[in-house]
Design a protein around this nucleic acid. Structure first.
Lengths: 242, 242
DNA sequence: TGACAATAGTGGCGATTAGCCAATAATACA
DNA sequence: TGTATTATTGGCTAATCGCCACTATTGTCA
């Protein structure tokens, strides 16, 4: 994270001087792309954990940030160029050993964003990269970020299970089959076609906008949908049971 | 909080010296007593907010606490004398104005404990008091603790709604009617008798341990129950739907 | 001792929903 | 025209919820 002034200024801190923990924010930013769930990682270029992949994150800017959610949002936008339909706290983790230099605390956030608008931004500006979730789970990450990532992934599962979130991150318009695949990726489970359709269509969050050919160009054309007007308010409609 | 060394040491801090936020932990400790949901509050005896009621809380002790959950647990035990079947993070709130002295961050926890073992401890040791939840909502609390309390209360509702938590905080043995009342208090809603019994008895978390006369001494004696062996592991059995 | 009040527990039923699987529909392509 | 592929619908069974009335067991009080 060479463009992170907080980081370098921190490195000059002498831990011995502190009787209060160091506080930071980390974000697991997820997206759906090429039929996979991916997460955005950045490569550290400073010690400790130089050259390791890490979650995007940073420190509260007492001048810019009116609150810590704003810190998270600022980090999200600076890494991806977009705001998110979902950005929420997962958990706060603090202990003496997660950073070898000092007692440190981080608040972990999770975000889910559409892939399309971020693609060039990320390639152009950052040393950031989208990793398929299975791939990143194999790597050793900086600090305790493997655990953080797992926490965020778990929260994403739960969140998807009882909201209608995925309709806000698919490229519009989308078919019910595409939507089902999105749910399945996010929830990491398979869903029954009939039940899925019943619930989604009854949930009253979709607006039909014509017909179209599915992805591969094969098979019967599907009805296409968009989020219904005001369905942001229905972000919390429960669609699935346990 | 006169016995809180962290607090007084903080008061000597000069905010201007900080370029990092002040970090603390607060706990909303709930219990059931006299047919009411109550929460434990402490009276501040220092400025700011001298003589206001506040949530129990404090600062991380870098020596004693291996992590922030340990900080919360230490605070819980020091205020109540007991550990809790439920102690969990609710949210982390940080901004520039919640403490008039400096940019401050707190991680809010919520705990639910049985009333009985705490009664004398609390009277004897602390300037702490159990408040019925409706009563405390009328008072102006220290800092942003009214909002924190509301967040914790909301989380308690949700948690109760899809776990079997209350069976761990009632005095044993208890009847299904008593248990239903506990759920209703915690969830702040009314439940259907038949459905409640069906679900609880099917959830396989209760062990019948004979019969007994209900509270008021009136009416037919009820079957009495205790948590089944190993039902701590079933803390997360979903008992209710939406 | 015999109503009556109060609380506990059960029976029954219609309406809804989940889960399963097969049948039908519409398209591309060989 | 036939086949592969994907979309959509139909139909059935089992489970569950919400509702309400009915039965059961006790204490109380005239």
């Amino acid at each position: 994270m060479p463009e992170s002034p907080e980081q370098s200024s921190l490195d000059s801190y002498n831990p011995k001087e502190f009787d209060t923990p160091i506080y930071s924010v980390d974000i697991a930013i997820f997206t759906l792309h090429e039929g996979q769930l991916k997460v955005l990682m950045v490569e550290r270029n400073e010690y400790p954990y130089k050259d390791y992949w890490a979650l995007p994150g940073g420190f509260v800017d007492l001048k810019k940030d009116s609150n810590i959610n704003a810190t998270a949002r600022r980090k999200l936008v600076s890494k991806t160029g977009v705001d998110a339909p979902l950005l929420e706290q997962v958990s706060t983790i603090g202990n003496a050993h997660r950073d070898p230099r000092h007692w440190s605390i981080t608040t972990l956030y999770m975000a889910l964003i559409p892939y399309a608008p971020t693609a060039e931004f990320i390639e152009a500006v950052n040393e950031a990269r989208w990793f398929p979730i299975e791939e990143i789970e194999q790597l050793q990450l900086a600090f305790d970020h493997s655990e953080l990532l797992q926490l965020a992934r778990e929260r994403l599962k739960n969140k998807t299970a009882y909201t209608v979130l995925p309709i806000h991150v698919l490229k519009r318009p989308f078919s019910l089959s595409q939507l089902q695949k999105a749910f399945e990726l996010l929830m990491d489970t398979e869903l029954e076609k009939k039940s899925f359709r019943r619930r989604l269509l009854n949930a009253d969050v979709l607006k039909e906008v014509g017909e179209g050919i599915p992805d591969g160009g094969k098979g019967r054309p599907a009805a296409l949908y968009e989020p219904a007007d005001g369905s942001e308010n229905h972000l919390f409609v429960r669609v699935f049971g346990d």
